[in-house]
Amino acid sequence: MSIVLAVLVAWLFAVGTYLVLQRALTRIVLGLGLMSHGAILLLVAVGGRAGRPPLVGKGDDGAGIAAPLPQAFALTAIVIGFGMTAFLLALAYKSWVGTSDDEVQDDVEDLLSGLGGSDDGSDDEPWVEFEAEDHPDVSKRAKP
């Protein structure tokens, strides 16, 4: 594995980890994207030395070519990573539309459990009648 690629993979993972630990959803999405790039680069790097041709003509025993399997892996991973990033962006958008805020909030349910109360989290389920007066803002209830 070339040292440049190894350092680059490590760098992508480091930056990705830093971004994923942030509160803003867009940064998390970017961080996950960088990490998946790191993983894909790792797949390419394990395929053997750089500079080998991907394919040689018919009848060759395949000794001089780059390993084709990691390239197939990398292509598959790129497609999957692309789909996931698109989905995540859509979800982040949905979250932004819902709360007009990009921040990831603390889970109120966790806070409430410690206080002995609980919201049933059912306000989005179509078969449950939602009554506003029975469900005061959870964040207010979370404060002792």
């Binding site: 959803l25 996950l32 998946s36 995540l88 982040a92 990831v104 109120v108």
Partner: peptide, 27 residues
């Protein structure tokens, strides 16, 4: 909507992170 998106976001992000780790490990 709203709160459910937030808690599913945790699920999605954790799982994508785990998948990326799995991919690296397989590599």
């Amino acid at each position: 909507t709203g709160k459910v998106v937030r808690s599913s976001m945790t699920y999605v992000v954790i799982n994508i992170l785990a998948s990326t780790l799995l991919l690296s490990t397989v590599g």
